[in-house]
């Protein structure tokens, strides 16, 4: 980390107008009265994404209010996961990846040259599609691994392990075998371990890339419960193909669609309830009702 590195400030109650961050009108118009006061913690402005010469996502403007769950829905291959990876600078590891537009976290452009990408990833955690605990580590080591990787101080190991596993609803199942290998857990347990691992470094935002797509219905239900609980003090952005899941867990929904041969765009976004019950765009209506996908 260099001296010029700008440390990302912890989330604070910023005034919407004063900071210039904005909620897209479609969301703003429909926010319930309490959400009108919510801060926008993360926002994208005119985000375009390329792989090599191919433009895959065009002009995405989205705002993610603090302590809410936003679901990104849309057909396979339309770039939702890529967009998610833009939000914490994971996309830049892909050869040929390119970006235009801005992503603001707490009012700070995360792609600014002074920003340390490691700080961004500490503040904006990620849970992946397939459970990916470190197989050679124990359950406990997995929970603490992020702290080691990000070189953060560890004050009370036991407490960190217990609280994070509790928040990920895994504590009761593993409290007697914290030293067992992470690979000994079932797929659903492994995914909850990955959530606990991501929580250990105290991110303000959690990005989840189809976290239940490789899991059975029981595990899915538990993880959805965890997501709802997390949203009481955390901002969650979740990519999902499961319409019912989007309705169950999210406060807001953004619908991505790539028309034939064209890059993907956000067709509609707003309160989940509105998107699913009274979509404005006929394409959204067709998609959420399963007429294509």
């Amino acid at each position: 980390m260099t001296m010029e590195t700008t440390q990302i400030k912890p989330a604070s109650n910023l005034d919407l107008d004063a900071t210039g961050v904005r909620v897209p009108s479609s969301v703003k118009d429909k926010l319930p009265s309490d959400a009108h006061n919510a801060n926008v913690l993360l926002e994208t402005k005119d985000v375009h994404i390329w792989f090599g010469q191919r433009l895959i996502i065009e002009k995405v403007n989205l705002a993610f209010p603090e302590n809410s769950v936003t679901a990104l829905i849309g057909p396979s291959g339309c770039g939702k996961s890529t967009f998610l990876r833009i939000l914490n600078r994971m996309h830049e590891f892909i050869p040929g990846a390119a970006l235009a537009g801005k992503v603001f976290y707490n009012g700070q452009d995360i792609y600014d040259s002074k920003v340390d990408p490691v700080d961004i990833r500490v503040n904006i955690g990620m849970v992946f599609q397939r459970p990916n605990p470190f197989p050679s580590m124990s359950i406990k080591e997995n929970v603490l691994s992020g702290l080691h990787l990000a070189q953060l101080p560890i004050e009370n190991e036991e407490e960190i392990v217990q609280t994070r596993l509790e928040r990920a609803s895994l504590w009761n199942e593993v409290k007697d075998r914290l030293d067992a290998s992470a690979s000994s857990l079932s797929g659903g347990q492994q995914q909850r371990l990955c959530i606990a691992r991501a929580l250990a470094i105290n991110p303000k935002i959690l990005l989840m890339d189809e976290p239940c797509s490789a899991l059975d219905p029981g595990s899915t239900r538990r993880i959805e419960g965890t997501i709802r609980e997390l949203s009481s003090d955390m901002t969650v952005v979740i990519v999902t193909h499961n319409m019912a899941q989007a309705q169950r867990v999210s406060d807001y929904t953004a619908f991505f669609l790539a028309e034939e041969g064209a890059p993907a765009q956000v067709v509609e976004n707003g309160l989940t309830e509105e998107i699913f019950s009274r979509p404005k765009d006929p394409r959204t209506n067709d998609y959420v009702n399963g007429l294509f996908g």
């Binding site: 914490n88 994971m90 590891f93 490691v118 700080d119 990833r121 500490v122 955690g125 990620m126 992946f128 397939r130 990916n132 605990p133 470190f134 197989p135 691994s145 992020g146 080691h148 990787l149 990000a150 070189q151 953060l152 990955c194 691992r197 991501a198 470094i201």
Partner: peptide
């Protein structure tokens, strides 16, 4: 496995951190 490197980097690890861990 790419998903393990992703996990390490997504947890705030540097590239070297991911390689080491």
């Amino acid at each position: 496995p790419k998903e393990l490197m992703d996990a390490a980097i997504g947890l705030g690890g540097s590239l070297w951190g991911g390689i080491k861990m």
